[in-house]
């Protein structure tokens, strides 16, 4: 590639493509969906091209799982096999929480690099970049959840229920992650730097995931902590997932988990959208 050849190509007119139609506008409803889908495609291609982002959200829970199963498992549950049966459903919830925090970091990066400015200078619906990003992340949540399940099976996790229950479990964690991603989206709109979103996101995730019954049954905890652990949405979701993957009560914890998810969504989704409109 020489400078001479570039100069030669540079004098070709930009507008030479015959038949490039002028952009079509005004079809608000369907075009918003179409643009959202295009932007979701971008998010998915991005995940495929940078698998390290997926590894990031999966690796941490994997390390926690290995640590807890092999280091503390024997002490907590008597032996590592029965501890894995106890812990894996909760770690699945933890995985999608980490993945949903990634939504906030990704949006913050897009705001930070100026790529949102480019989207906003295009004749597309204002919400398309936000909804496209979240749409793509739903796929990412599912992928990271499946990876975690496969990893659990490799370690020796055995399903105590049928395939339908497993699919329902994945559906439930995705509902929970979808509700929670609005918290991180709102955070991304008020915090200026992707690193700060990650740091503050961690402060939100820690009490949610460790102040829960994901790793240790609530009964062993002091009363003040148990008060939080027993109402923590992560505990409720983890309980429902245990029922769906291992066996045991499902309806009770599932309903409470869904109420939590609906509550989080009802508070944070409008807040995030308002902040998004203000920011963009």
């Amino acid at each position: 590639m020489t400078t001479a050849s570039r100069t030669e190509t540079a004098i070709r007119p930009v507008t030479s493509t015959p038949g490039v139609p002028a952009p079509v506008h005004g079809r608000r409803g369907p075009s918003a969906l179409r643009h959202g889908a295009t932007l979701a495609w971008r998010g998915i291609v991005k995940t495929i091209h940078s698998p390290e982002a997926l590894v990031d959200v999966t690796l941490q829970p994997v390390i926690f799982l290995l640590l807890f199963v092999y280091v503390f498992g024997g002490a907590i549950a008597g032996d590592t096999t029965s501890y894995l049966q106890f812990a894996l459903p909760g770690v699945l919830v933890q995985t999608v929480i980490f993945a949903s925090a990634g939504t906030g970091v990704g949006l913050s990066e897009d705001l930070h690099t100026g790529i949102f400015d480019r989207f906003r200078s295009l004749p597309i619906s204002r919400g398309a970049p936000l909804f496209g990003a979240i749409g793509a992340d739903l796929v990412r949540y599912l992928t990271s959840g499946v990876i975690m399940l496969v990893f659990g099976v490799i370690l020796g996790f055995r399903f105590g229920t049928g395939p339908l229950a497993v699919v329902t479990a994945l559906g439930l964690v995705m509902v929970f992650a979808f509700a929670l991603c609005w918290v991180f989206t709102a955070l991304a709109m008020v915090v200026n730097h992707p690193r700060s979103v990650q740091g503050l996101g961690f402060l939100i995730m820690m009490p949610l995931t460790f102040g829960s019954n994901v790793f240790v049954p609530a009964e062993t905890m002091p009363a003040w902590l148990r008060g939080w652990v027993e109402i923590n949405p992560v505990s409720k979701t983890a309980d429902a997932i245990r029922g769906l993957l291992v066996g045991g009560p499902v309806a009770g914890p599932a309903v409470q988990a869904l109420i939590w998810a609906a509550g989080i969504f009802a508070v944070f989704a409008p807040m995030a959208v308002t902040l998004y409109r203000r920011r963009t």
Partner: peptide, 30 residues
């Protein structure tokens, strides 16, 4: 629909290829 903008920082997606970046904008322009 009738302007183009190149901001102070290159607003391209690092994780996508050059062609994919252009395809993204082209598809958003319908």
């Amino acid at each position: 629909s009738r302007i183009g903008l190149t901001g102070q920082y290159a607003a391209v997606d690092e994780a996508l290829s050059g062609t994919d970046n252009l395809m993204l904008i082209a598809r958003l322009l319908d």
